[in-house]
Nucleic acid binder design. Structure first.
Lengths: 316, 316
DNA sequence: TATGGTTAATATGAAATCCATATCGAATGG
DNA sequence: CCATTCGATATGGATTTCATATTAACCATA
């Protein structure tokens, strides 16, 4: 059986008249009669009772009519779904991110824009460490990941730089350097005698290295104190007075009791934001996501209004 | 689009290999490649990613695969339903009957057998007067009707005789004639002085006429007392002592306090059971029903064991 | 690096099938 | 009883589908 048979059958059943149905289908009556009879022969079922004025569906014909209409409707639905899926307007995407990424207004904005624009794509978010995210990409558990650091082993992975933001220093509230005006910037060198809280190396090697390098550039080797597993823990340790920390400026939106932020003078270390994808991933929602990320990044980069902006939602 | 495209697409998607899929479909590789490309062109969607070792469905392809399978399944289902409907194994039938019909074991047996044999045919029962049933047949509210009397205006209606059973007399419990042995038969003539309860003429003309005729044949003109709208009401009036009634033998299974039944000697009036249908009704379930009714009637007629048989269920 | 093998794409001719024209047959209604 | 209507049949033409032969691309292995 072919869909043609069903289309012809529906027309004849609806018209109750082979000749009129043929007109409606833009063909002649004899081939239509032929096809109807072919369908009847294949099913071994009489679908119409031939009457002197037109034809009338039998009980079996009426039963088939309902099903045939449903089938054609399902065909249309399938075509639409397929096209939407191909255009990336329908499907699934899992976006991973490191804990510090959503503090930058960029990520929530992208997520929100994507959900608005492609409401039929079901988007899931997953927070994890950078190495786990990259593993997740390889295992196809994650389709895109916002990370801050370069990837150790980029085999099969593409990392696109999106933005850079300066880093700031987080000081304990009572600290001597925290007595200066909020708007005043500190020289990195003035932190030479401080204890530095850093996040654990295996999870995020890059940011750690950047901080150390910047200190060296300022002429001192930082004393490293405790290591924290997540960036939020870092700030907790700062609040407890265990040391200072160098964090991306966007972290300032995390207003925490006992922590004061100060900008850094001169060549402050910079924290990048990057998007990691599987190389050659052609999944349409992922491509759409990448397009949107790039477009949003362009809107951000001319005037990187770090820290001064309001976040609508941290995650959807 | 045609079903062929979907069938081919499914094969290729499942095999992940055009050549193997072609084998499975019993065709060569080039035309299969052609048809797949034609489908892609029509949908304007890439369904497969061509890899050096076979092909791999894209996200859109995977989406279509699920839908295509569902569509083919629905096609199979539609074919099966159509065939079953044509064979009368699926559909609807409404069987009407006069109030006295289900007391004869024949009708419940037929109904039960039909439901067992054609479980997918939804059967509804409707009790009504004979004239209403015939009207119902014409209006297609009813498809078959068990009646006892001939039809006044049989235009467009076929009535098949099924069975005949003798009639018996229902006497009030305390009546003099009820003192005889239960197994003893009474002469109709012995009721000459009795008052007869009959059912109203417009609803069931035939049975009334048959009783009067039998009385005349026995040499008396019966005194007609009250008329009852339904046969059950007749027996109630008998129980109340308002007279006697001549009823089909199968009514004896209606054991009612205050009513005694006696067989009639000699040429007792006989009550027929008939099936009324629309003339030229080709609806398959109706034909199946008629077949089953006739077959069951043949099994009954050799030995009409009236009144002595157990009824399994009165109606389903 | 070269080469053989594998697989999908392309080209072309043959076969099937689908459709249009012409005609027939059955049934109805004036 | 004839004209009309409408579906079925017959036959030739056009399109489509399929098969054979060949090409191109890509890997694996020597």
């Amino acid at each position: 059986m072919e869909l043609r048979h069903l289309r012809y059958f529906i027309a004849v059943a609806e018209e109750g008249h082979v000749t009129r149905a043929a007109e409606r289908l833009g063909m002649q009556q004899p081939p239509l009669s032929q096809q109807i009879r072919a369908l009847e022969r294949e099913l071994d079922v009489q679908l119409f009772r031939r009457k002197p004025r037109g034809v009338e569906p039998t009980a079996a014909g009426r039963a088939l009519l309902a099903d045939a209409r449903a089938i054609l409707a399902q065909i249309d639905h399938a075509c639409a779904t397929t096209r939407r899926t191909a255009r990336g307007e329908e499907g699934r995407i899992c976006v991973g991110f490191t804990s510090s990424a959503p503090f930058h207004p960029f990520m929530p904005r992208v997520i929100r824009a994507f959900r608005e624009r492609y409401p039929l794509v079901s988007l899931t978010l997953e927070e994890s460490g950078t190495t786990e995210l990259i593993e997740g990409l390889r295992a196809e558990r994650v389709d895109a990941a916002f990370i801050r650091t370069p990837v150790a082993n980029p085999e099969g992975i593409t990392v696109s730089p999106l933005l850079e933001e300066p880093m700031v220093v987080a000081l304990p509230q009572g600290h001597a350097l925290a007595r200066t005006s909020k708007s005043e910037a500190l020289a990195l060198k003035s932190l030479a005698t401080e204890t530095f809280i850093v996040y654990r190396r295996p999870t995020g090697p890059g940011l750690y290295d950047a901080i150390i390098a910047a200190c060296h550039a300022s002429g001192f080797s930082p004393r490293v104190g405790q290591e924290a597993p997540r960036i939020v823990s870092t700030l907790n340790l700062v609040a407890a007075g265990l040391g200072v920390a160098i964090v991306p400026a966007s972290l300032q939106r995390m207003q925490m009791d006992g922590v004061a932020y100060r900008r850094l003078k001169g060549t402050a270390p910079r924290a990048p934001l990057r998007l990691a994808l599987r190389r050659h991933d052609t999944a349409p929602p992922v491509r759409r996501f990448l397009d949107l990320v790039r477009q949003t990044a362009r809107a951000f980069s001319p005037s990187p209004r770090e820290g001064g902006e309001k976040v609508a939602r941290s995650a959807g």
